[in-house]
């Protein structure tokens, strides 16, 4: 069994980071993982995306034409990638910045106002963690317990923001239910 998740949004939204946290969590649960960034001549405010591959077998191609899931944090990302998601995948839509749907009836849409939720918690920067938590809660790719552990680990050097991110996790999980 192999799942691939594409995370996409603006540079600065913490897209690569949430991809990395998911990869870490899956590794902790014993899966084979690969995290593949889009790297190229990027600019501030441009698009950023990465793909996380999670498998119970050694991972072959790191190049994924059709990922199973998509986490879209801004409108250009949804417009660009919603058509490549495989049927029955989950498409997370950050409705705070995306006023449209995926236009697909063969995927499961998960609408989360990630920016609003994070702003209410006191810091818009946590929108990525809200989205990640909601996505994990919906797909069950890893347990939310492992996810919590890995988020704590990721921010271990910035203890001041751990509380905020733990709250963001809880709210994300709630948004998915």
């Amino acid at each position: 069994m192999q799942s691939e998740v594409m995370f996409a949004g603006f540079g600065g939204q913490g897209i690569l980071l949430i991809g990395k946290i998911l990869a870490y969590a899956a590794m902790e649960e014993g899966f084979e993982v690969a995290w593949i960034p889009s790297y190229g001549p990027e600019m501030r405010g441009g698009t950023a995306y990465c793909t996380v591959v999670i498998s119970d077998r050694p991972i072959g191609s790191p190049i994924i034409k059709n990922p199973l899931h998509l986490v879209a944090m801004n409108r250009p990302s949804l417009e660009k990638f919603s058509n490549i998601v495989r049927p029955d995948g989950v498409v997370l839509i950050n409705t705070s910045l995306i006023p449209i749907g995926s236009g697909r009836n063969d995927v499961s849409e998960l609408k989360v106002p990630a920016v609003e939720i994070a702003t209410e918690l006191g810091n818009v920067k946590a929108a990525n963690i809200v989205a990640l938590a909601a996505f994990v809660a919906r797909t069950g790719l890893v347990s939310t317990e492992t996810l919590k552990k890995c988020v704590k680990q990721e921010f271990a050097k910035k203890p001041k923001v751990i509380d905020l991110n733990m709250k963001a996790l809880e709210e994300g999980i709630r948004a998915a239910s």
């Binding site: 990395k20 990869a23 590794m27 084979e32 993982v33 690969a34 995290w35 593949i36 960034p37 790297y39 991972i59 790191p62």
Partner: peptide
Amino acid sequence: DGLIGQMMEP
């Protein structure tokens, strides 16, 4: 190749 450098794996 560039992907070996940029990719993260365990």
